[in-house]
Design a protein around this nucleic acid. Structure first.
Lengths: 190, 190
DNA sequence: ACGTCGAGTCAACACGCGATGACTGAAAAA
DNA sequence: TTTTTCAGTCATCGCGTGTTGACTCGACGT
């Protein structure tokens, strides 16, 4: 059985992690203070430090973008796979990812984290596109994905912040299809 | 004629503004210090304060996204207009806009600035799209634009960071066309 | 020539931050 | 019961920040 103390500690750690996720994703790394996290978690700054060592460490425990499933298939299948991974993220607020995304432009670790995630996905996608500009196309697909998530959750673009994922997915499908290049973009020549 | 003193002041102010633009766009608001700006401008922190009043004020003098020309026309024309405003921004590094964009996720003023710009453009676009989901479509167009600029200059997505604007524009044209909804997206129904 | 103005310099203030370490008291082990 | 362990508390340190005000001194107006 778990002792009273172990259980108490588990609960407190959990409160701290939840508070950290919330504040990091709402305010970013620099504007989130250990003291604010402690207050939100109804505990003490010293305890946060003891349990997690440093602010950096706490952030890395809380901010993460889970890798999607491997991507492969025909260009159209790839486009749809990216679309699915997008609508997944649009389903319900991915707090851990938002903690990362909120700080990606100002905090070096978060920047690396996002860059790594995007590059990983991008390379998988590019490998399936039989084109000389595959890397650029894959990079644009990831950029569209990024822009959509940032627009919805962080910038709160009107109409995008409260749209249902399916509708967004339907509107974006032609984009990903065109970027994947299954068929020539309509009216490409001029 | 301009006096020596007036000229000297003009030069120093200019060095400060250039330094501030550079540092704000590279490191964001919070991680840019008045001292660092002064050092970069080869002057004194006190002088920066005297000339610009406060860090906030200096930021607002330096970070701006110039409004694009009004958008109107048929859906396809609107799509192309957005595309042009994008390729313009991809032409050469828009330092003043990057100062704004770099801080948009963590600094309230920058957030407002980007939000205002996007909403403004979005409303112009939406007004030209004869669709019930015009706002969402326009919002997605702006989100794609945002994602592309952020991906190129701030995240530095591989292949996107050094691509020529025309190539990016060509790849993105079908996206904006589809979002503008001039014709039905290919394979929309299933 | 003389007094004024203003560009530039410097030291210091008040504040909030991450981090440290000593302390308390109750639960756990002996 | 006695001893040890550890969750939780608290005061405090060192540092970097934005900001202030006093000071210098060469250019300017008269």
């Amino acid at each position: 059985m778990t002792t009273q103390r172990a259980e108490q500690r588990r609960l407190t750690e959990h409160r701290i992690l939840t508070a950290a996720r919330k504040l990091f994703s709402a305010n970013g790394y620099d504007r989130t203070t250990i003291r604010a996290v402690a207050t939100e978690a109804e505990t003490d700054p010293g305890l946060v430090m003891r349990y997690f060592g440093s602010k950096e460490n706490l952030f890395s425990r809380v901010a993460r973008i889970d890798a999607d499933e491997p991507i492969a298939g025909t260009p159209d299948e790839v486009a749809d796979a990216v679309l699915v991974s997008l609508t997944d993220k649009l389903g319900d607020e991915p707090v851990a990812a938002l903690a990362m995304l909120r700080s990606m432009l100002t905090h070096p670790d978060a920047s690396r984290g996002v860059h790594n995630f995007m590059t990983e996905q991008q390379q998988q996608i590019a490998a399936t596109l039989p084109r000389p500009d595959a890397t650029l196309r894959a990079g644009l697909m990831m950029s569209v994905l990024l822009g959509t998530v940032v627009g919805r959750y962080l910038i709160k673009v009107e109409g995008l912040d409260d749209a249902i994922p399916e509708e967004i997915g339907d509107l974006l499908r032609p984009c990903f299809r065109a970027l994947a290049g299954g068929d020539a973009g309509s009216a490409a020549a001029e």
